[in-house]
Write a protein that binds this DNA or RNA. Structure first.
Lengths: 320, 320
DNA sequence: TTTAGTCTGGCAACCGTTTGCAAGGGAGGA
DNA sequence: TCCTCCCTTGCAAACGGTTGCCAGACTAAA
């Protein structure tokens, strides 16, 4: 069906190796021959079969990007940034979604092995041990997870959480609810760690929770009942769910309870009240992850990106 | 590095062909041998190299899914549905984003060729002619586009638009703005066609526009100025942008102007006012597209899925 | 015991490319 | 004029599997 290297070779009376070299090492072939080959290839609509090429070279010029949930608006900007960056490096990025299921995640990684040159693992749910084992088969860059000796792009969640808590403290809040994410989430741990280190607060923990609007909705009643006047949510989706749930109970945000999210996603900006949140450098992270994968001969460089508090309308003075 | 078929063969003293058959045609190998091979394979952590397999069989058990913009919340549910459906069929779906750029779209399709068994083309921006040409190299299923002889999954946009317009008419609106999407969008054409066929309306067209919140924001002033009391937007994102823009001009929705979107995305449900919209069967479409690709020997079956009007808070009686 | 048929499993070609090796030709230096 | 050396190209062996064909070992029927 599609033209192969042989067809091109036959068409202009040279050996296949010459055609091959025309594409992968042009300086090794006579300019005259080269243009003959190019012309023939163009005429036949020839494009090298990347799978076959990968078989001998071991390089596919593809990379995989695995995320837990494409529906979470946090990921798309990261994905787009990674794809754009990769495109500039002559690479393509294939995205896959695990539905928050570690088994699917593992299966996906195994599928990617040998079809890509490396995998960007975004907020993985797999255990460290499993990730280390899989890393023997395909290079990883991990985003938002710290694993010994593995290249990683981290967002400074602890710093952001600290900023958020200080902001709340400054508004007079003392009893603060911490609504965490799913089990095994590095981000959750970082948040809790930062909170525990911040003095003078009376913290109440809730978790694990689904990292979605539904998750926030589900804990809204408990949060309301615990007597906290402010809550720091695992991410914006959870925060939005919380606000929704509180609204259903006629608890005003920020009049009665202040809410801070994480990520800075679009729906948070459109929401009423507009969400106060810790902005995560998703775009920069996507770019960095690609570069790290391409550079790393497997060495475990770690890049940490700063976060920033964005104060909007969902936080206010504590009730006196 | 990773174990190959040869390693397994050596490990249990059989020919590679026997190992191969153990995996791809188990009934051809003696149960005793089979389990020996399986054990050896398991011990070595052997997994068939899908790229190599594809080289001889021509089947990769992968499919590509190309969307214009992952950031648009309309796509993720479709993507997830497709991935889930494919998983059930032992297939994997690789997603790629074109950034609404036809050239990137073409490049992506070319990359996918030979690495996947087929491509799901979602709301493509490429010309029909180009798509037909590319279809010679890799099977397509097109979503939201009608191309002669090519399998397609369509959402009944015309029906939805009619429903929406009748709803508006029923509320007393006569002068209605139609805010369309990008050039080359089949959906836009369908909407306009349906609108033109609905009698008794005074329509004002605006377009082309970016299919995003920014696009809606940008036409808000023109829409406000044109004297329409209601607007049908290309999609929910545009509708949300419009509402945002109108709010900035202190024009209340739905008090002054009613707004209907398309898609039924999450942010529309969270918005104040909650968005009245035409729900698109994205999940069903993702599933169907996968099945169509797997069934179709290339034949052009066309599936049309119904849409439904969901009335929320962004539409109301026309001002009298 | 012979004959035909069924199972198994080895052999080798092939899929589309890459790449080390070597050979032929021409140019430049001695 | 002969010898090097470089440039260009062909040859063939990989890469990791799959698969049609064939042969040997059995089994069962005659």
């Amino acid at each position: 069906m599609a033209a192969t290297i042989k067809d091109v070779a036959r068409a202009c009376g040279v050996h296949v190796s010459t055609v091959s070299r025309t594409f992968s090492a042009p300086h090794l072939v006579n300019p005259a021959t080269r243009s003959r080959v190019l012309a023939a290839a163009d005429g036949l609509g020839y494009r090298p079969n990347r799978a076959a090429r990968a078989l001998t070279t071991g390089r596919t010029f593809n990379m995989g990007l695995i995320v837990a949930d494409i529906s979470n608006p946090f990921f798309p900007p990261l994905i787009k940034a990674a794809q754009a960056q990769a495109r500039g490096r002559d690479y393509h990025v294939f995205v896959a979604d695990t539905d928050e299921d570690p088994r699917v995640e593992e299966e996906l990684i195994r599928t990617f092995t040998k079809q890509v040159d490396g995998v960007l693992l975004c907020s993985p749910r797999l255990s460290n041990k499993m990730i280390e084992r899989l890393a023997e088969d395909v290079p990883f860059v991990v985003i938002n997870r710290r694993i010994k000796g593995m290249p990683a792009v981290l967002m400074n969640v602890a710093q952001g959480a600290k900023l958020a808590l200080e902001h709340l403290a400054g508004l007079g809040h003392r009893r603060i609810a911490l609504v965490s994410g799913p089990i095994g989430s590095w981000t959750s741990n970082e948040m809790q760690g930062a909170a525990a280190e911040t003095p003078g607060l009376d913290l109440v923990f809730f978790g694990p929770n689904q990292p979605t609007e539904a998750g926030g909705l589900a804990v809204a009643a408990d949060v309301a009942a615990c007597g906290a006047t402010a809550v720091l949510a695992y991410n914006d989706l959870v925060a939005l769910g919380l606000i929704e749930g509180l609204a259903a109970m006629e608890i005003g945000v920020p009049e009665k309870i202040s809410v801070i999210g994480f990520d800075d996603i679009l729906p948070g900006r459109l929401n009423r009240p507009k969400l106060t949140t810790v902005a995560m450098p998703a775009v920069a992270a996507g770019r960095m992850a690609v570069d790290l994968l391409l550079q790393s001969g497997g060495e475990g460089a770690t890049v940490t990106l700063d976060t920033a508090l964005i104060v909007r309308e969902s936080t206010g003075r504590a009730q006196t």
